[in-house]
């Protein structure tokens, strides 16, 4: 564990690098997940309005 703490005289640069990388990746992930949730919400709203996709609108029993 002591080796972890001893990052030498430039510890600030090392920790800043890992910190910024973590923030960028977390932000990218957050944006992708939020985008997915928003799109799912829109699709559900359109379904509630009765708007169906062509493949979804086909009467049951017809081979898709």
């Amino acid at each position: 564990m002591t080796q972890l703490l001893d990052l030498g005289p430039h510890a600030g640069f090392i920790l800043a690098s890992f910190g910024i990388t973590t923030v960028v990746i977390a932000a990218l992930f957050g944006w992708i997940l939020a985008d997915h949730a928003a799109l799912k919400g829109k699709l559900a709203e359109l379904e509630r309005q009765g708007v169906r996709r062509r493949s979804g609108a086909r009467p049951s029993g017809t081979p898709s």
């Binding site: 985008d35 997915h36 799109l39 699709l43 359109l46």
Partner: peptide, 12 residues
């Protein structure tokens, strides 16, 4: 996400 986005656009 991109596929869902295109589905939303088509439905709209």
């Amino acid at each position: 996400n991109e596929i869902l986005r295109r589905r939303v656009r088509t439905l709209q």
